[in-house]
């Protein structure tokens, strides 16, 4: 049932979420202010961090997006993002 403690998996996913959010938020800002060097540096920095965290998460816990190539098909393995109290069926 419900586990209140954050697992290592959840912590790593939160790291992906946080970096991805920073990258996306700066992307949206750059849409309106493409000449901002500060925003561009910020975007590049957080996109790099996001990609690194994403690779680490995917190597341990499974794909976040469909993979380039795969030895076996794990895309439909749960839990899906809204399922919090089961490991998938």
């Amino acid at each position: 049932m419900f586990n209140n403690r954050e697992s290592a998996k959840e912590r790593l996913l939160r790291t992906v979420d946080a970096y991805a959010f920073m990258a996306y938020e700066t992307l949206l800002y750059l849409d309106a202010y493409p000449d901002s060097k500060e925003a561009l540096e910020c975007y590049n920095k957080y996109k790099r961090l996001e990609n690194r965290a994403r690779k680490e998460y995917e190597s341990r816990y499974g794909w976040l997006t469909a993979p380039e190539e795969a030895a076996s098909w794990e895309w439909t393995n749960g839990p899906w993002p809204w399922q919090i109290d089961k490991e998938g069926k």
């Binding site: 419900f2 959840e10 939160r14 979420d17 976040l64 997006t65 469909a66 899906w80 993002p81």
Partner: peptide, 15 residues
């Protein structure tokens, strides 16, 4: 469009 298997911000409701 491509799906990403995560929420933009975590949702974890106990009750």
């Amino acid at each position: 469009f491509q799906y990403e298997k995560r929420l933009q911000y975590p949702v974890k409701i106990k009750t």
